[in-house]
Every structure is written in structure tokens, then in C-alpha cells.
Design a protein around this nucleic acid. Structure first.
Lengths: 143, 143
DNA sequence: ATATAATCTACTAAATATATAGATTATATA
DNA sequence: TATATAATCTATATATTTAGTAGATTATAT
């Protein structure tokens, strides 16, 4: 399961994706209301996305948040890694958060690693190749 | 990420799969030592697998745990659902643990649901079609 | 009767998830 | 330059989950 935080992040980014062409900052509170996200919690999420280079922000009147890059250039994988960490099901098959499993003698002989590798590959294939733009395009298609 | 508990469960089941033909009970403590799993923690895991019909047990001397059914009939999906719960990334796309997301107006218009559905399908395809027997067969191949 | 091995009951500690409250800082604009 | 605005920072709070541990009890083979 992805966290509610990650879901909130994707929903917030969806809003900013829809407003990307307009190039006008969007208020945290507007996003919070529109997507039913607790405002203070959303603040922390957007700040994190900004610090990791996904968003840019503007303080004061007329301020708010904007995507830093075009939405087709931001993958869902990137967002999930920032908010939830590893996408892989075990540390030993993670690309960005690799870690040796403390109960494992060797990765070569581990019997559960192969299936976890398959899961990781299948998940990454989808998450890496879906951009924020894709999210709203699919959105339109289902209407 | 799957929990360490789920990984322990799969490793324990791997041991029991290898010993399935012999039809002799295996001790909790033997599995614990062999797979470097805290014994008391493993006890709880095996009990859960037994209560859910994956294992059978025998008390007293000569006792221990055995697989209830042939290992090719037990999918990794079944094990993961018992130990970790849902395989799906969100409640709204879960087959066995479906639940409405409290922040969502409608599942039809949700923009992140389609990608989560894809992830679920890809994961289930792998987890459902991999049995305990497959785990050790792949194991042998990599030796 | 005894040793064995699973089972049951009851905790514990640490980490993570999901937030909330209030003070501070930067900025546009009147 | 004063003011309102809106993001940012600091500090908690609370519940749940994770990953265990300890010790008593029950069933069984010999």
C-alpha cells in the first residue's frame, strides 16, 4: 500500500498539472479544499516536493505553488520515492534505496529475491513510464 | 515494501516445501536457526499460517509443522495476504480488501486510480502465478 | 510419568503514519 | 512604509504498526 501522504501528493500535483499552462501560482488552501486534504498536512507535503525540486513556490500575495518542470517530465515513480521511499518490495532489489537484508546469507541463493525482482521490474515499468500529464490524460478518457 | 514478517513467512515455507516429500514434521526451532528468524516471532507466524489453512502441526515429541497441501498449490499471493494484508497499492483497487478511499469523491473520476489498477494487475499476475514450489525451483536454477 | 514441542496470554519498545497549533518570514501592493 | 497575504519553520500529539520477548499452558509420543 502507498501511504495516504503519497496519494495526497499525487492529487495535489494533479491539480497543479491542470493549471500548469496558466502559469499562475495555486494556493495550498485551494488544493486542500479541492482534494479534501488536511491543510497543514498538505503544507508539509508540498514543501517536501519543493525541496526535492518538483515544485517552486512564491510567498506573499499572489503567491502559491507551481510545477517547476512540464508535467510530462515528472514521473509518478519520482514522486513516490520522495514521499514513500522505496518502490521495491525488499531492500535487496531496490534501485534507489538498496540495502542488504540482515537475515540473508547471500543474494545469489535467496529463494524469494527472484520474485521480488520481478515485482520491482513490473512496478517500475509502470511508475517510471507514467507522468503527471498521463494521470490527467487518463482522467479525461474515463469521463 | 513487504514486511519482515512476510519475508520470514516465505522463508519458513520454503524450508517446509523442500521437506514436503519426506512428510516429516519440521521443528519451529530448526526453521528459526536455518533461516535466522527470531524463534518466538516465527512461532506466531507459523501459527497464523496454520490457522489460515496453509500449514498443519503436531504437538509433542516427533511433532512440528508441515505443509497442508502440495507446495505447487500455494501461491505467494495467498501467503502475503495472510501476513501483510492487501497486495494492491490502494484500498479502492484491492480485490480481497476493497475499501472506499475517504478522500475520494468517485472512483470513476479519480485520476490516480487507473495507474494503481495497473500496478495491482501487474503485481497479482506475478504473485498469483508463483507458487511455493516455484520459489525453490528458481532457487535451484540460480545455483 | 516424563520430556517434548506446539499453543496461548500478555507485554514492550521503536518506528511510522497522520495529523495539529502557533510563531515566523518573505512579498506584493496600497 | 504599513498591511495583508501566503508560504515556512518549530514543536508537538496521537494512533497504529512493526518487530519483537517472556513465561505459563496444553497435547502427545514413548
Amino acid at each position: 500500500m502507498i501511504s495516504k501522504k503519497a496519494k495526497y501528493a499525487l492529487k495535489a500535483l494533479k491539480v497543479l498539472t491542470k493549471k500548469f499552462e496558466a502559469n499562475e501560482p495555486t494556493l495550498i488552501s485551494d488544493i486542500a479544499v479541492e482534494e479534501k486534504i488536511p491543510k497543514k498536512f498538505l503544507e508539509a507535503i508540498l514543501l517536501e516536493l519543493r525541496n526535492q525540486g518538483i515544485l517552486k513556490s512564491q510567498k506573499g500575495k499572489g503567491g502559491g505553488y507551481l510545477l517547476r518542470t512540464p508535467p510530462n517530465e515528472v514521473s509518478v515513480a519520482k514522486v513516490l520515492r520522495i514521499i514513500d521511499g522505496p518502490i521495491a518490495p525488499t531492500p535487496c532489489v531496490s534501485v534507489n534505496f538498496y540495502g542488504k537484508c540482515d537475515d540473508c546469507e547471500s543474494e545469489e541463493t535467496c529463494s524469494i529475491r527472484p520474485i521480488m525482482l520481478k515485482i520491482r521490474n513490473a512496478s517500475l515499468e509502470i511508475y517510471e513510464n507514467t507522468s503527471l500529464l498521463d494521470l490527467i490524460l487518463k482522467d479525461s478518457l474515463t469521463l
